[in-house]
Amino acid sequence: MSKISNQQGRNVQKSGVSGYTRAVGNDELGQLLSRVQACVISNGNELEKLLIDRCSTIDNIDIFIKKVTTSNINQGTFLCTKKILKKTQDYKDVIKGIEPDMIIFIVSNYRLCKIIELKDGDTFDTKKVKGEKANLVTFSEKFGAKIPFSTDYYVCCFNQNNKEIIREGMKNEFDLEHIMTGKELCQLLNIDYQEIINIRKNDMEENFNYFIEELLKIPEVLEKINQIIATSENK
């Protein structure tokens, strides 16, 4: 999980005070909350990195598909990242303007290609969901027509194990068969799901401690907390 301590937050000199500062009326607290928000936003990238580091990844998707086609690769599960996909020459016209988070290729007696949109959260606005589903469907159809794999698409909300809740959070745009949990994704990639969870739990604890420490460094906050404690003790 991303660390609050690594986040800069809003550049106040360049962009002015954040909405958090306007909401709470304190510059230091507003900036701390801005750093928390930056941490939340970067969690998706951090999750993706954790998964990629534990997978058999593809260095060149054009060469990989040619090797599968010529039976030089007959077995395994392989991950193609967005960065590698962008470098394709054979499929650049097909994928133009659409970049799914990851593509998983399963090679065995059968060949499967799973187009994945990876989410750290599970609730999104309708316009965003509709656009992402349209892109996944288009990519799956166009790319799938060009490769020797049975192709389908999925949205994976890594931290939510209830597919009904995911479907509601995705505004009922995705059918259950196109929804994947984090545990299912890890099983697909032959990754230890619990290891990922444990790593992120440790980071959560570090974030909690850091946030409280930084919070107490703000004089107005510390003063207010002491007032609340004193009032509570006198009741």
Rank of each mutant, 00 (worst) to 15 (best):
Q187Y: 10
E213C: 09
N198H: 13
K201M: 09
I179V: 11
I197V: 14
Y210F: 15
I197N: 01
D192F: 04
L185R: 05
M204W: 08
H178N: 14
E205I: 14
E173M: 09
T181K: 06
D192E: 12
L176Y: 07
K183A: 05
I196V: 15
I197T: 03
H178L: 09
Y193M: 03
I199T: 07
I197A: 03
F208E: 14
F211N: 01
Y193R: 02
N172H: 12
F174N: 05
I196P: 00
N190D: 10
N198P: 01
C186E: 00
L188I: 06
E177T: 13
D175G: 11
T181A: 10
H178Q: 04
E173S: 08
Q194R: 04
I199Y: 02
N207S: 11
Q187G: 15
N207H: 10
E195W: 01
Y210Q: 07
L188E: 12
M180A: 05
I199N: 00
E173W: 06
F211M: 05
D175E: 14
K201D: 08
Y210I: 04
M204V: 05
N207L: 12
D192K: 09
E206W: 03
K183S: 08
I191G: 04
N202G: 15
I191K: 02
D192R: 06
M170C: 14
T181V: 08
E195A: 05
N209L: 15
G182V: 09
R200L: 03
D192L: 04
E177W: 10
Q187S: 15
E213F: 07
Q187I: 05
L185S: 04
E205S: 13
Y193W: 03
L185T: 05
Q187N: 15
I191W: 03
Q194S: 07
N172T: 02
R200I: 07
I179Y: 01
K201N: 12
L189N: 02
Q194Y: 04
N207A: 11
D192Y: 04
R200E: 12
N202K: 14
N207Y: 10
D203T: 11
E173A: 13
L176Q: 10
E213K: 15
Y210G: 03
Q194H: 06
K183L: 08
E213A: 14
Y193L: 01
E213V: 11
M180R: 08
N190S: 12
Q194C: 00
I179W: 01
N202H: 12
I179R: 00
E184Y: 03
R200S: 10
K201W: 06
D175K: 12
N202P: 00
D203L: 06
E206Q: 13
N207C: 11
E195Y: 09
K183D: 09
Q187E: 15
Q194K: 07
Q194W: 01
E173V: 14
I197Y: 02
D175Q: 13
N172R: 08
M180C: 09
E177R: 15
C186P: 00
Y210D: 07
D175F: 11
Q187K: 14
I199S: 00
T181L: 06
K171E: 14
I212H: 11
Q187F: 09
Q194M: 07
N198T: 11
G182I: 09
E177Y: 14
I212V: 15
E205C: 06
E173Y: 13
